[in-house]
Design a protein around this nucleic acid. Structure first.
Lengths: 218, 218
DNA sequence: CCGGCCCATGAACCATGGTTCATTCCTTGT
DNA sequence: ACAAGGAATGAACCATGGTTCATGGGCCGG
């Protein structure tokens, strides 16, 4: 017995793993999952192609990992807002503005997470991601109905509509021209949010809140 | 010069071409574009793989053709309703109900047209398809605003929201369970439409119109 | 019925991109 | 310093699925 993994080594291994994930994440947020080819990830991480497979059993697993890491961040952020003790209507506005605002500021990444063509496996992760969004929306709507802030509706369907409307209006062929979004993202976001609020009978949003997350995403 | 295409021959050729398109269309509406592999289309059409290439320069062109044929049908149907001289609000309701109703009844095909992962070329066709939807919606909204039936809004954005909300709520991971849609498609459709109408400030829809297109799509 | 040409055939070909593995390089404990 | 592994390498391998092409069969005008 002449070898045992030492701390220094396992630290280096962990670092390499991290490096792979970071390289892959960067590629994804630059060019979507399509850009995260194994050999490209390896190049970016400064290692050999084969080395990837010492850390991840397949490309699929690597991508899944990336998807989870990135999407978890987004979901947590929304969940945090949703869990505040503000009135439902306020939480709704903030959640929608955050969702839309982050999507518009990190469009490439949002595209990868929400709309890019991906294979079955990632589609599963994406389904979870989107269902989580819908649940967050649905719960707030539920609260709003209970508290009388919102009229009765089928919250599941309304939540699905919201979860569909926002990305569609912001990314892909139906989004405004990119320069328009770059110049005045808030206006577009506000209009989309207004549509969704009206859709659930919440009237016009308050257009003043300054504490809402506005930083760029990637 | 000892050969010239005779009518009989060109008829047979046209028939073969049609056969290929039909085979491909059937495959697409059963399993999406992924199921329309060249060799499979050939088998279904009862010809050899290579023969396809005597009629279409590439798979891509074949798929594009299919996409156009199918989507044109859908667009025309909506355009027809949109062009009627009914009040904007009525046209809006009918267009939305038709759109959603047909999507829910031809879900596999709707998935292929609206949501299935496809490559860049088909994505272009899809973009056109979706933009056309949005334009149809937008024009009606415009009319409604001019006539005072609807409040002012950014019609482009509202149209994009609608074009996103309906498919998302009907197909994919955020749609209700399939059996639910099979059992009671109209209820779901009505709720989605209600959301969209409310989104543009058109209040509740009239839930009675019986003349609306309700036949299955595929 | 024949020469010429088009049409159909389907197995071979090719491109892409993920995966493997024999080899080499490093680390560790003695 | 050295033996015994683990870790890294990257070129070869493989699977998938679109595309080609040499070949054979049928249709045309004379």
């Amino acid at each position: 017995m002449a070898y045992r993994q030492t701390d220094k080594v396992s630290a280096r291994l962990a670092e390499t793993r991290r490096g792979i994930l970071d390289a892959a994440r960067d590629l994804v947020s630059e060019g979507g999952f399509a850009a995260a080819q194994v050999s490209e990830v390896a190049r970016r991480a400064g290692i050999a192609t084969g080395t990837i497979y010492r850390y991840f059993s397949s490309k699929e697993e690597l991508c899944r990992q990336i998807f989870r890491e990135v999407s978890a961040q987004e979901m947590d952020r929304l969940a945090l807002i949703a869990a505040s003790d503000a009135p439902a209507r306020t939480r709704l506005v903030e959640v929608l503005q955050t969702f839309a605002g982050r999507a518009v500021r990190g469009r490439r990444l949002a595209y990868a997470l929400l709309a890019e063509p991906v294979d079955a496996n990632l589609a599963e992760e994406r389904a979870f991601f989107r269902r989580t969004h819908a649940e967050i929306f649905a719960r707030i709507l539920e609260d709003g109905i209970v508290s009388g802030e919102l009229p009765e509706t089928n919250v599941k369907i309304a939540a699905a509509c919201i979860a569909g409307a926002i990305p569609t209006a912001l990314i892909g062929p139906l989004a405004p021209q990119s320069h328009e979004l770059d110049e005045n993202p808030d206006r577009v976001v506000d209009e989309i949010v207004a549509f969704c609020l009206a859709g659930v009978g919440a009237g016009l949003p308050e257009r003043k809140a300054g504490k809402i997350e506005r930083r760029a995403k990637a």
